[in-house]
């Protein structure tokens, strides 16, 4: 049975994770997790696509209800997509089973690991 949730991975230039979350929150996401990373594109790719690739990246993971996945992906594309300074790439991955979500917000939110109303993972 397909799960009601998907996890959105968004890879952006360092410093743009807040912009990703701002875009996602407009459509119902409540929290995400940011991992620092390093991009490896460069050289040929930069010349071919006429872009500059900053190696410092952030990966934002956002667990969302499948109903709002497309809206969030579109919002991310508009606000931090490849045409913007954020140079973001986003994709959604299906999730089988989820635990740890608040019952009251299970449809659209991530939990509050610290027990604070606005705190997210």
């Amino acid at each position: 049975m397909p799960s009601a949730h998907q996890v959105i991975f968004c890879i952006v230039n360092a410093g743009f994770s807040d912009a990703v979350m701002d875009a996602a929150k407009k459509y119902g996401a409540r929290g995400g997790t940011v991992i620092r990373a390093r991009g490896t594109a460069g050289g040929d790719s930069e010349r071919r696509y006429k872009i500059t690739v900053s190696p410092e990246k952030e990966i934002v993971m956002i667990l969302v209800n499948v109903r709002i996945t497309d809206d969030i992906l579109h919002a991310i594309y508009r606000e931090v997509g490849l045409e913007t300074d954020g140079q973001g790439i986003a994709f959604a991955v299906p999730v089988d089973q989820v635990v740890g979500l608040h019952q009251s917000h299970k449809s659209e939110q991530q939990p509050d690991p610290d027990g604070k109303e606005e705190e997210k993972t």
Binding site: L63, V93, D96, V98, V99, G100, P111, P113
Partner: peptide, 17 residues
Amino acid sequence: DEKFRTIKGGKGIAYTV
């Protein structure tokens, strides 16, 4: 899930792909 709910400061999320 049980540990997330019972351990102090142990809240979190887990999912499988």
